Computed example of a mutant assay.
Amino acid sequence: MIGSVQRALRLLEAVGSHSEGAPAKQLAREAGLPLPTAYHLLRTLTHEGYLRRESGVFVLGDAAERLAGGGLQQKRRSMILDSLAHFRDTVGAPVYFAVYREGEIEIVGVSDTPDNPACQEWADFRRTGHAHAIGQCLLGQLDEDARRDYYDRHPVDALTPYTVRDMRALEQRIGSMRLMQPVIERQEYALGTVCAAIPITAGDIAATMAISLPLHQQDRLLYAVGRLRSEVGALLSTLSFSISI
């Protein structure tokens, strides 16, 4: 054990227990440290940004808050990945979770198995939203201006013989989508792969969960996505669902 690290951590814990901060003498007493040692460590922690001194008391600094935020972020991500693994086992197919954030498609998590591998990202998912169910589902949740902004940066382009050919055809497809219904895509992104995505209500950000299957299993697609839809409600009700991850 490294004693100086242990002592510094005890001081951080002491500071963290006081929302309005505390003076050095009180922190030294609570951490069980000699005052000179506490002063030395408090100066070091302040220099490194883990503490701030304000009006004679010490409060947590930006570096400590980033650590705490990173831990919360990791916990949220772990919860989402655990949920995806549950859905994967339930539907017997790879499961994806994606959001549309800051003008881009972002795959937050994927859960698959060696027997049921996820679709290989051979063309950047972010730039090919027109060609896969995930992207079409997300684009369908945006307003017209937001979609056109995406098309301006990532033009519609055929990836396979089955990909939608142009923006007009894609807009017609999006316009025909029924609210909260699955989006089905067959070999538009990758030959030999079919995919289905369902829209997710997650605050004011467009989100989706999706599954993929090899073409020879396409008869399972509607059943599998139906199972996924029936399970997703549990995710939204049991998790403090946040997509700020």
Rank of each mutant, 00 (worst) to 15 (best):
L159I: 06
A118P: 04
H132P: 00
D143L: 05
D149V: 10
G109E: 02
E171G: 05
D115F: 10
R186W: 00
I134T: 01
A190S: 12
V194T: 00
C195D: 02
L191F: 01
T113M: 07
A169N: 12
P199A: 06
C119L: 15
Y189V: 04
R148V: 14
T201S: 15
T193A: 11
G140P: 06
A196I: 01
F125R: 01
E171R: 09
A118N: 08
P117T: 04
R186V: 05
A197E: 02
H132Q: 04
C119F: 10
R165D: 14
V164Q: 08
E171P: 08
D124V: 06
A196G: 09
P114I: 03
R127F: 04
V164A: 09
C137P: 03
W122K: 14
H154A: 10
A169F: 04
A158G: 13
T113L: 06
A133L: 03
P161S: 10
R147C: 01
W122H: 12
C137G: 00
P199W: 12
E171W: 05
I174D: 07
R168I: 13
I134M: 04
E188K: 02
G135L: 04
L139N: 04
G140A: 10
A123E: 10
L142G: 03
C195M: 14
E144C: 12
S176K: 06
A133I: 00
M167V: 15
I200Q: 08
L142Y: 04
C195F: 00
A196V: 02
V156R: 08
Y162Q: 12
R127P: 05
R168N: 14
G192C: 09
H132D: 00
G175N: 14
T193C: 10
D157W: 13
G192Y: 08
Q136A: 12
R153E: 11
P117Y: 07
L159M: 04
L138I: 07
A196D: 04
I198T: 01
G109V: 02
Y150Q: 03
P117F: 09
A133M: 05
D166E: 13
A196C: 09
A123P: 03
E121M: 11
R148L: 14
R165A: 15
A202C: 07
C195V: 05
A196N: 02
W122P: 03
A146H: 11
L191W: 05
P182L: 11
F125Q: 00
L159C: 07
G140V: 09
R153K: 13
Y151V: 08
Y162P: 01
